Simulated scan of single mutants.
Amino acid sequence: MTLATILVFAAAESGTHGNVALETVGYGLTALGIFGTMALVTVSYRNVANRHSRKADAYAEAHANDVQRAGHGH
C-alpha cells in the first residue's frame, strides 16, 4: 500500500464530516468574551484625569517654573 491509498482509506472511514462552522463557535465566543472584558477595562479608565483636577492644578502651580517653554519640544 502506498501513502496515497492509506490516506484515501482513512478519509473514507471517517464517514461524516459534521458542520465545521458549528465546531468553531467556541473560538468566536471566547474571543468575544475576551474583547468584551478588555472593552470594559478600557471604559473604566475614562475621565480618570478629571477626577483629581484639584491635585493636578495644585501640582501644576507648584511646578510651573520647572517647565521649559521653548516651543515644539526644543
Rank of each mutant, 00 (worst) to 15 (best):
F9P: 00
G73Y: 02
Y45E: 08
G15V: 01
T24Q: 07
V67Y: 02
H17P: 00
N47D: 15
H17M: 13
A39P: 00
V67M: 04
K55H: 11
H72G: 02
T5F: 10
A4T: 07
V25N: 00
T16I: 02
Y45T: 08
G71Q: 10
R46N: 06
L22Q: 14
T30S: 08
A58F: 06
S14W: 01
M38T: 09
Q68M: 11
Y45F: 10
D57I: 13
E61Q: 15
D57W: 03
M1N: 06
L7C: 04
I34W: 02
A70C: 05
Q68L: 13
V67R: 06
A70N: 13
A56Q: 14
G15M: 02
Y59D: 09
A70E: 12
A4M: 08
N19G: 11
V20R: 10
I34F: 04
S14M: 10
A4C: 02
E13Y: 04
A10M: 12
Y45M: 07
T5K: 14
G15H: 00
G71D: 13
E13P: 00
A64V: 10
V25L: 11
A21C: 05
N65T: 15
T24S: 08
H17S: 12
T16V: 03
T24D: 03
A12Y: 01
V25A: 11
G18L: 01
T37E: 02
V43N: 01
R46Q: 09
V41G: 09
S44A: 07
H52T: 07
L29R: 14
M38Q: 07
A4W: 03
M38R: 06
N65A: 15
I6F: 09
T5N: 12
A70Q: 12
A49N: 13
G73V: 01
N47A: 12
D66N: 12
L32N: 01
V25G: 00
A60W: 05
H52W: 05
G15S: 05
L29W: 14
E23S: 09
L7D: 06
H72W: 14
R54N: 08
T16C: 01
L7N: 10
T37I: 10
Y27S: 12
Q68V: 03
H74I: 08
E23W: 04
N19D: 15
G73N: 06
S14F: 04
H63I: 06
V67L: 10
A11D: 03
L29F: 14
R54E: 11
A58M: 12
V41A: 15
V41W: 10
N50T: 02
A39L: 12
A10L: 14
